[in-house]
Design a protein around this nucleic acid. Structure first.
Lengths: 198, 198
DNA sequence: GTCAACTTGTCGATCGTACGATCGGCGCAC
DNA sequence: GTGCGCCGATCGTACGATCGACAAGTTGAC
């Protein structure tokens, strides 16, 4: 029990660091956030940070890697679920995409400067996960066209247009505004259907 | 002439600094790019930087402010041009938006970390310009609906969806790929029309 | 069962470095 | 000879990272 307690406390602190680090990186950017900032945000010494992460870069990588892995794990199986129609798969993924990027908004640390801060190997890992999602989305559109469900001029361009549209929401959506999250999901589902259906 | 030449050289150097700074800020991020990096990129001493800008922040502000001002100056008059139909205004702005964000891609330094690096007054200036563009776009959609040209469920949501879609292009478009810029413009014009027309 | 040895997590102090910014002086154009 | 643009040298600071010490808990030999 003592070992378990010790491990749990360690895991909790690591999780807490990742949570606060996500927020600070999201607000100020990775380079503008110091190890001391992160340590202060969780109430520990800066040197203690190095008992949970080998360096600052690893904190960033842990955040990005975990989020992207979770994102792909949640969406790609739905996009590949052949028991559902392409139309239904798209509908479900639109909801998943919007909900995940809202729930875990601070963890979404995309952009060139972030990529620049990671190792080539870490970059490659992120690109691989992103490609997996893009490919799955593109495939379901292709399938829908073949099945006569969708009418799409250029599947690749439409894929990027839809995903960019979904990614943009987190930048302006605030639940305190006129729209609830479910309303946004409904609106975007309809917009995406306009883009792909006959 | 000598004075003119001197001024020209000064202006040229300032313009050159802004150009290289845009690229470096775009690639590595603002905080990760040092004054010495900027100076090296244009072949001057770091102290000379301070003869053209009061500090590092002003370099960033000059880039962002100039681009956003130019962008609004190019697009809003088209959106407000009552001699054109709402449909034609949208078509022209889609092209302008895509071409400007391609031509001056490094200057597009949006995102929270950038905003965080600016003064509140400088932030307000950027927000004001962005709002002017968004409002003009929203108004032309409203006008099109009133004229029976467009069929839109929620004009505000559709406005954001369209603009996010357009903003996303610069992240993945590479002229070396399968698509030319004109092809992308044509595709996106068609996609936007799907989103707004009957 | 006892106790020394080891492990783990934390800290304050500190290292070397790179940063933003300043200063004084130099050279050239007028 | 005056002013402006440019430079090398330098300042004070904040950064990422390391170190040695210490406390608490776990392990293993006897």
């Amino acid at each position: 029990m003592a070992r378990k307690k010790s491990l749990d406390e360690g895991s909790d602190l690591r999780a807490l660091i990742l949570e606060r680090a996500s927020e600070l990186f999201h607000e100020r950017g990775y380079s503008a956030t110091s190890i001391r900032d992160l340590a202060d945000a969780v109430g520990i010494s800066s040197s203690t940070m190095y008992h949970h992460f080998t360096n600052k870069q690893e904190v960033l990588h842990a955040i990005v890697s975990r989020f992207m892995t979770d994102f792909v794990a949640a969406t790609v199986p739905v996009l590949r679920d052949e028991s559902l129609s392409p139309r239904e798969r798209v509908r479900r993924v639109v909801r998943l995409h919007l909900e995940l990027s809202d729930d875990r908004r601070p963890e979404l640390l995309v952009g060139n400067p972030i990529r620049y801060a990671l190792d080539p190997a870490q970059q490659a890992e992120g690109i691989k996960l992103q490609t997996a999602y893009h490919d799955a989305f593109r495939d379901v559109l292709t399938e829908g066209v073949a099945a006569g469900e969708f009418r799409i001029d250029d599947v690749a361009v439409t894929t990027m247009a839809v995903l960019d549209m979904l990614n943009g929401v987190r930048e302006w959506f605030a639940p305190s505004g006129r729209l609830t999250r479910d309303m946004v999901v409904a609106q975007y589902t309809a917009l995406v259907e306009r883009l792909i259906e006959q």
